[in-house]
Each structure stands twice: as C-alpha cells, then as structure tokens.
Amino acid sequence: MERLQFEMFANEILSRLPTKCVGRLRCVSKQWRYELSSHLFASIHYRRMANNLNRKVMMLTKTSIDNHNLIGGTLEISSRKIISFPVDTHLSNLIFLVSQYGIILMCIQWRPDELIIWNPTTNQLVNLCDKKPKKIFDLREDAVGIYMDSSNDLKILLLQRRKDDVIPRMYSRKTSEWKTLNFLKGADYGSSLYWWSSGTLCNNVLYFPSPHYWTPAKSYTIAFDVESEIFSKVSIPQHTGVVGRQNRDP
C-alpha cells in the first residue's frame, strides 16, 4: 500500500516538475530513484512536458551538443547549455536517427553496426548492438523508429534490408531483447532502389516513407500499427497536375 501511494504521488505530482528537478529528486533515496526511473513515470512526465509551451531544442555542432530554451516559439541563444556525451568520440561522427519521449536513437560513424539509445537528461546510454544478434544495424540500408506500447514499454522497431528481403526486429527495453516480426509478402520491399526514412509516430502508427530513386510513381509508405504489430503498405498520392481554378465572373 505504501509503495502504491508513493507511485501515485510520483505520477500525479512529481511528474509535473521540470526535468532538472526530477533528476535531483532521484538522489533522495533508492525508492525515489527506482520510481522516478520507471518506464511509466518517464512516459507520464514526457507527455506532461510535451504540453508545456516552454520547450527545449538540442543542437548538434562540430564541437558541442547544445541545449537551448524555446519559449513561445523563440529560441533563446543566451540559455545555451552544453551537454556532455558519454562516449569518447568526435561529435562529427554522431548521427541522430530519430527521437521520441526525450530519448534519442543514434549511431556513430566509423563504428560499424552500432545502434545506440541515449537519454540526454540522465546521460545514460545503451548500445543495442551489444545484444544478440550482433552486427544488426546498417546505416545505408536500414530504418528505425521509436514507440511506447500500451504497457509503457519503450520499443525500437528496426527494418533490416538483407539480400532483397526486409527483416523487421523489435527491441524491448523491459526485456532488453530483440524479437523478429512478420513482414509483408511481395517483391521490391527490400530493393536497394528505395530509400528508407526513419519512422514517424502518429496515432499509434509508425510510418516509414520509402521513395523510389528513379521512379516516383513506385514510391510508397510502410505503416506499422504498434498495438497489433501488423505492417501495411500505404500508397503515396500522385501529382495530378491540377493547380487550381480561378473564379470567373458570371
């Protein structure tokens, strides 16, 4: 009962505090650190902060990772704070692939197959390629997306393109394991003539645009329903050449 009461206190009250304050409160005790580090609290806190008009923007330069306040749509340069990165590498080697829930999914150039989850607030980092199977990510061929399922488990969806086939793998932060999903049947999904974009999350669906290099009419989008874990193909509307009609006097 005591733990349940504290969990309600954390989710309903502490989740409304700024990120910096939450980070300090994690040092109060082991219980506070445990509750304020949970997937559920992180999800609730992110959603509350997302509705805040005062947001922050992270900027990656050649020499630093900068954090700025964004107040009322205006970037405050004077609020600049430098964020340290927990890996000893030149910042020009970092590639930010996609971000969601305050988490950044990224890779490091010149280190083959490294796919990394980084939380800039806590400065915690997990190399997903330390898990089986290894050599899992190819920057030139693969696409990734982040989402939170109904159980508040942060998951990574990876679309691997191997020998003209697409192998979808899903990583769970709760279990720290990968599992293979079923993909669509049909030709050309793994063709190297398609360029894969990172996934965009909208209404519990991840969308992966896949434009064709030479023939725009062949372009399509792969949609992934995060609840049913089912893929579907969405055709991209083609340009009809109709610009508009001008009003004419009768």
Rank of each mutant, 00 (worst) to 15 (best):
Y213N: 03
A50M: 07
D188Y: 05
H90M: 11
Y207P: 02
F9P: 00
I146G: 03
L184E: 11
S38Y: 04
I167W: 04
I13C: 12
L158E: 02
S219Y: 02
C107T: 15
K20M: 10
L184S: 11
M49K: 02
F183P: 05
D66W: 04
L75N: 06
A223S: 14
V28I: 13
S192L: 11
K56W: 00
L75H: 08
Y171H: 10
S176M: 12
I236H: 00
G241R: 04
S37V: 06
F224E: 05
R161V: 11
L94A: 07
S43R: 01
L154G: 06
H39G: 07
L53M: 01
L17V: 06
N127A: 09
S92E: 13
V28G: 08
L159D: 00
T121V: 13
Y194P: 02
R47G: 00
A50F: 04
I230A: 12
S150N: 14
I82H: 06
V57A: 10
R26G: 07
T200I: 14
I222C: 01
I108P: 04
G199K: 00
I146S: 02
S191I: 02
K135D: 13
S43F: 03
S150P: 00
C202H: 12
F231K: 03
S78D: 15
S210D: 00
S192F: 09
L4M: 10
S232Y: 05
L40S: 10
E114P: 01
I103C: 07
H212Q: 02
T89S: 13
S150M: 12
S176G: 08
Q109R: 15
S228V: 07
L201P: 04
I116C: 10
P216R: 02
K131R: 13
S235T: 12
P168M: 10
S198N: 14
S210H: 03
I95N: 12
V144M: 01
T122Y: 06
Y194C: 05
P168A: 08
P250F: 12
P133D: 08
K20G: 06
I77L: 14
I13E: 09
L75C: 12
S84K: 11
G190S: 03
K62N: 15
G23H: 07
K20F: 10
R162L: 14
W196P: 03
L36G: 03
F224T: 05
I44L: 10
I95A: 11
L115Q: 05
T221F: 09
H239T: 10
N54C: 07
T74D: 11
T89A: 15
F224Y: 14
F41A: 04
L91Y: 09
T215K: 11
L201C: 05
W214D: 15
I117V: 13
